[in-house]
Simulated scan of single mutants.
Amino acid sequence: MSEVKLAAETRSDFGKGAARSIRRENKVPVVLYGHGTEPQHLTLPGHELLLALRTPNVLISLDIDGKGNELAIPKAVQRDAIKGFLVHVDLLLVKRGEKVNVEVPVQTEGDLAAGNFLLEHVLNALPVEAEATHIPSEVTVSIEGLEAGASVLAKDIKLPSGTTLAVDGETVVLQVLAAQAEEAAESADESADA
């Protein structure tokens, strides 16, 4: 889990016009909320925030107007559909030692058994509960030797210490399917011959 420090400024102007002028300055309008506090409207440097958000579930240490640090995790990120720049970000306030529910990317290692098999990611990210300062960056699942019909359930995935599942253990995360493209091509050839 990486922690990124960013300098934040409070903002008092709201609406589309104010947001556009903030983005013209290469900054991003942000709302920080959580723990029953009033939402704080902030401005963060655009490039630094974009780099920080490349890490899944990044922990952001905000220095708000040079007065003190707050810890937050990204809750919602809005990007421009065409150019990809950040339009708006919602951050959730967290405390050290607090448990949070997040989704952790699922990575695979190893090779499927020999044959024409397909690996289907039913869940690309696994919902887990972890301490805010110790969120795993990913979970790795071995698919070595799996054949058609095999599946990996959430309860079968080894999680780092201090991390628990936030989904039913019987939930299918990965499954192996037999490829059917060749069979469809053969039946099309047979009907063409007839």
Rank of each mutant, 00 (worst) to 15 (best):
N101M: 11
S21P: 00
Q175R: 15
P45H: 10
L50F: 12
V30H: 04
L177H: 12
V128F: 12
T164N: 12
H41P: 03
R96I: 08
K158G: 07
M1Q: 03
F14P: 02
A188M: 13
S2T: 10
D193Y: 09
V104T: 03
L53T: 08
V176K: 00
D13L: 14
E190M: 06
A113E: 03
E98A: 07
V100P: 03
H41K: 12
E138F: 05
P160W: 05
E3W: 01
V58E: 02
N26Y: 14
A178T: 11
V172Q: 06
V173M: 02
R24M: 09
A185W: 11
S187T: 14
I135W: 03
D193A: 15
V87N: 08
G169C: 05
A114Q: 10
G110F: 08
P127D: 12
V28H: 09
R96V: 15
G68H: 07
T164R: 15
V58A: 00
K158S: 15
F117Y: 15
E70Y: 06
D189W: 12
M1E: 01
L123S: 15
D90R: 10
S61I: 07
N124A: 12
I135S: 04
V89G: 00
P105F: 10
E38I: 10
V31M: 08
E186F: 00
R54V: 07
M1S: 10
H47D: 14
K5C: 00
S191N: 08
V128C: 07
A81H: 09
G110Y: 09
G110D: 09
V172W: 04
G17S: 14
G110Q: 05
H121V: 13
H134F: 05
P160S: 08
E98P: 03
E183N: 09
L53G: 08
A113P: 01
R11N: 03
